[in-house]
């Protein structure tokens, strides 16, 4: 009987030393309790998930690139101002398109998007002193210079959509409505950095200690 217990104890020690404890890191693929070899087609069904790989297509991707000349089924984006930031005669559009209501909601949205996508480079204040400038970075634009204060909204829209000079495009991350929201927030930042005493409403002057 004693030998049976010895064997059991030995097996326990062996298992623990081979399998280790919970939570240690490892790089081999996780073990499966019900391996695919014996239970095929449940864990990995014959379907593609986004960004997966494929053995069927020559380039190994399950996500297919658009074929050349493909036509979008979505409504025609024919509002040049809203989708391209241009006026009918191809100039940069000034102001916001009619479809976008400039209100507190838009600016709040713009602030959120700006903080995610622009602040790392252009800084939370829009002064071009984002965190990356501490790492040998060139010079992200400072929105408070005159060039950018007078830059038409349409041109900023185009910069976000297609990038400009050394800045890459953010068109894949921001839908057109969000791009306009960001522009509204950039305008708010520019206004805030150039505010005068007269801009403060009378009832707030006392709180700020100005006459």
């Amino acid at each position: 009987m004693r030998y049976a217990y010895f064997t059991l104890a030995f097996l326990v020690v062996l298992t623990v030393s081979v399998l280790g404890f919970r939570g240690s890191t490892f790089t081999r693929p996780p073990m499966m309790v019900f391996p695919d070899t014996f239970f095929p087609e449940m864990n990995h069904q014959a379907k593609y998930k986004p960004q997966a790989s494929s053995t069927f297509f020559a380039d190994g991707r399950a996500d297919r690139p658009l074929p050349a000349g493909v036509v979008s089924r979505n409504p025609l984006r024919d509002d040049d101002h809203l989708y391209r930031g241009k006026t009918a005669n191809g100039q940069w559009a000034k102001g916001f398109p009619a479809a976008v209501a400039v209100d507190a909601r838009l600016i709040a949205r713009g602030r959120e998007r700006y903080t995610i996508y622009c602040a790392p480079c252009h800084g939370a204040l829009g002064d071009g002193k984002g965190i990356v400038t501490q790492y040998n970075w060139g010079a992200p634009a400072n929105f408070h210079s005159d060039v950018f204060r007078s830059m038409p909204e349409g041109q900023i829209f185009d910069t976000i959509t297609n990038g400009a000079k050394t800045m890459f495009s953010y068109g894949d991350k921001l839908v057109p409505e969000d791009r306009w929201a960001v522009i509204a927030y950039v305008r708010a930042l520019q206004r805030a950095q150039n505010a005068r005493v007269n801009d403060v409403e009378a009832n707030h002057k006392q709180e700020l200690g100005i006459k």
């Binding site: 399998l19 890191t25 490892f26 790089t27 996780p30 309790v33």
Partner: peptide, 13 residues
């Protein structure tokens, strides 16, 4: 050992 707490946690390829 036969639960995801062991089989998956810690996977860092």
């Amino acid at each position: 050992y036969a639960t995801p707490k062991y089989t998956r946690v810690g996977y860092a390829p």
